[in-house]
Design a protein around this nucleic acid. Structure first.
Lengths: 243, 243
DNA sequence: GAGCCTGGAGAACACTGTTCTCGGAAGCGA
DNA sequence: TCGCTTCCGAGAACAGTGTTCTCCAGGCTC
């Protein structure tokens, strides 16, 4: 946020900027997006509303900042948990990504809604966000690629991909290095699709839990999520060779 | 909405009530929830804002009505499409539920966001909604149950369910008749979990497309969704015996 | 030390949801 | 047909909201 040398003014500016985001995030946790009020943020900081406009172009700008911030925090939590595990324990790493993602969502439901719920109207993802938003799915892909590298193949039974999806996969595979994902030289297109689907299912499951679609259906969401995670790991051939 | 005999007053009231909802739904399609304004609805009907309160207790009440209305319409679209297919063509019925659901979402993205996006703050699902909300997953379950009835088993390879999930499944199975879902006498618990997961994956996939999480990843969402649908049908053993 | 410029104050505008009172008109029973 | 009741809409008001504008003082920069 601050460039190299920091004048006193720049320091003050940075402090205020982060203070605004911090307060906004705290209020977001209390009331949820849509109810987040710029004036409330200003009040909390003993500021007049118009003063906030020195730092942000408006309410949506603050929300945008909270979104990138949320992706950063979620990604950080997932990365931290997975990095603490031995690289060879693919199954533990895979489950870690799933449970850490859910854990973060359960702890920060409003931020989760901001990231994966209805998009905010004025929001156009800045360039920085697109790489941040891929952290979770990137970790999923990392485990799968490591499994292939260790000679664990995917169970048979997948049909060939239709042409449109093949094109999509090529697009994705070409963009992997830019996202910091180390992929094998020859990426299996089916792996790419399955990882994308597993990611979708992961986020969908957590969203269903947090958004109340599982009432009267799933009373043990943690257990259920682990079940789904193991299911996908089996389909991706992550478990030990002896089934 | 109207009970048996309808006095002129009741007629007028019903007409106004539906008119308000209709206008609200049209405006919702233009601006999205959160931007939907009670005053704008009133303006459109040449009404003063306070007059709307004769029919709805507030803005959230209108949104609640739009939610139940949305579930009804989505469910109706799905049911209509599936009922037009021969009951024995399980695969076609299965795909129909998937593609019809996506098609409705693509046509009504804001209503989709209302149903499956971030929950509305003041919204507590009325009793009527819980049955409406299960229409899509109920149709998925119906296809699977019909497959079992026709002697198509699920492919092997599923691990036993952990105790918490077993309890959840029993709860769900006990509630099936109340939802109008005809289930076999002995419901396979794994089938219930898989249907729930397929439903989650379906909604998650459409949401990811509509909410912009698939940019730079899935340029052919229709084809991708069909791929996912077929994938689940294979895991559920819906296709003809000869693979 | 002179000057610029930045950040905050304050007022104002156009909205929003919601509550209240009040009037008139339409429906209803006799 | 008359009179009463009920109900619907108008209107004003209040407390909020996001946003824009002008103005000014203080601190930073040169």
């Amino acid at each position: 946020m601050s460039d190299g040398r920091s004048t006193p003014r720049q320091q003050h500016r940075d402090a205020r900027t982060t203070a605004i985001v911090e307060v906004a995030r705290r209020l977001l946790g209390e009331v949820g997006p849509g109810q987040l009020s710029l004036r409330a943020v200003a009040r909390e900081l003993d500021l007049v509303p118009s003063a906030v406009y020195r730092y942000f172009s408006g309410r949506d700008h603050i929300l945008t900042e909270l979104i990138t911030d949320g992706y950063r925090r979620l990604g950080g939590a997932v990365a931290g948990a997975e990095d603490a595990l031995p690289r060879d324990d693919l199954l533990a790493r895979w489950r870690s990504v799933w449970t850490t993602t859910r854990g973060w969502g359960v702890e920060h439901p409003h931020e989760w809604a901001l990231l994966y719920g209805s998009p905010v109207p004025g929001y156009a993802a800045p360039a920085e966000t697109v790489v941040l938003a891929t952290m979770v799915v990137g970790r999923l892909a990392g485990v799968v690629f490591d499994a292939r590298e260790r000679g664990r193949p995917r169970p048979a039974g997948a049909p060939p991909l239709p042409p449109g999806t093949r094109a999509d996969v090529e697009q994705v595979a070409a963009g992997l290095p830019a996202l910091g994902i180390t992929a094998p030289d020859e990426v299996d297109p089916v792996d790419v699709v399955l990882v994308l689907d597993a990611w979708t299912h992961l986020v969908g499951t957590v969203s269903f839990e947090l958004f109340g679609h599982y009432v009267n259906a799933v009373a043990h969401p943690q257990e259920h999520l682990e079940l789904v995670a193991d299911d996908w790991s089996r389909r991706l051939g992550l478990e030990a060779a002896a089934g």
